[in-house]
Every structure is written in C-alpha cells, then in structure tokens.
C-alpha cells in the first residue's frame, strides 16, 4: 500500500517533532552515567566497594576470645571500645593485603597515638600468633573470630578493614583495604585529634 498523494501534505508545525529526540536524549544520558562510572573505575574507584551503613552508629555487640599464648591473651568485646578512641583492624594470617598494611600499623603503634585492636578473622590462633611473631605485633588486644560473626556484624567484606571508634563506641571512620601512611596521615590521625577534643 503506497500513500497516494491525495492531498498535498503541508509540513504542519503542529506535528510535534520533539518526541523523536527523546530516545536520543535518554541514550545520551545513559552513556553519560555509565561513562562516568567507567571513568571512575579507571581512575581507581573500587567497583566492589560497598558503602558502609554503620558509619556513625554504635559498634555492634560482640564478644570474642583472645589468642591463647599471646603476651596479652585477653579477648575483645564491644564494651572494650568505650572510654577512648580506638582503631579496630580486621585481619588474618591468610590475608595478603594485610602484609602490605602491617608496617603502617607497627608505625602507628610506635607513635602511640591510638590503641589498635586486632580481630583475627577466619583464622586459627596458632597461625595468627605465628604471623604476629614473624612480623611484629602492633595490637593492644587481639581477638579471634574464626567463624566471622563479628566480621559480619561489622559489615566486613574483605580483609583488611579498619574502623575508627570514638570514646562513646560509635564508628566514625571505615577504611576498606590497607591503611596506607597517607590514609593515616591525612584522614585517620586528624580525625583522632578531632574526636579526642
């Protein structure tokens, strides 16, 4: 069926043309949004990063045993995280990035600015202890979390992760991945000063 030109169709301005541009605009917007995300990832944003929902909330209730045989074999509980600013570090002897982070933690311990508590996640006490013996022990207390219940309560997805807890036991900062000297200097150390005021 061909349209016979029965009546000369004048291009009426009333025929709206803008709807034809809608798909173009929508697609351009999608390209923009996805493109930005891709660029962010290219520049180092971690696509696996899950924004924490625990920021500015009370530390979860937990009570863990310590590592038997350590010089301080005490465990760690939520109640221990009150009174002063503390840094809670989730690690494991199996964790490769923790090896990379460790010198920074040792340095922080040496500066004696904040007590670091370790949660030895999905590990055995023997392996955790051996690891600390080999590389040095920056922790005030070390707790074992063999089944990861405390780690899940903290919303941990991968080691190392660290939480800065204020004197009221409220989580103020979360570091996913190793604490680097830069993160310590630029973010955590100033925040500790601020929280102690």
């Amino acid at each position: 069926m061909t349209d016979a030109p029965t009546s000369p169709e004048a291009p009426s301005p009333a025929r709206k043309r803008w709807p034809y541009f809608v798909p173009l605009i929508v697609i351009a917007a999608m390209f923009g949004i996805f493109g930005k995300r891709l660029l962010d990832v290219e520049r180092g944003a971690d696509p696996r990063l899950i924004p924490t929902v625990l920021l500015d909330t009370q530390v979860p209730a937990f009570e863990l045993e310590g590592l038997p045989g350590r010089s301080d074999p005490r465990g760690l509980a939520a109640t221990d995280l009150k009174g002063d600013v503390t840094l809670v570090n989730v690690w494991g002897s199996w964790c490769i990035a923790c090896v990379q982070e460790h010198p920074t933690l040792l340095q922080i311990a040496k500066e004696n600015k904040v007590a670091i508590h370790g949660i030895d996640w999905r590990d055995t006490p023997d392996r955790g202890l051996a690891w600390l013996k080999q590389r040095g022990d920056p922790y005030a207390r070390v707790a074992q979390d063999p089944h990861g219940e405390a780690a899940i309560a903290f919303g941990v997805t991968a080691a190392p992760e660290s939480f800065l807890v204020d004197k009221n036991g409220v989580i103020r900062f979360k570091q996913v991945g190793p604490i680097t000297p830069e993160v310590w200097r630029d973010q955590i150390a100033p925040l500790i000063e601020q929280l102690r005021k």
Binding site: R122, H147, G148, E149, A151, I152, T157, A158
Partner: peptide
C-alpha cells in the same frame, strides 16, 4: 566464597 559460607552458617 568463604564469607558466603559464614553468612549461610549465620
């Protein structure tokens, strides 16, 4: 994943 195992157990 190990964490999935832990979550299933929990």
């Amino acid at each position: 994943a190990e964490i999935a195992h832990d979550m299933r157990v929990l």
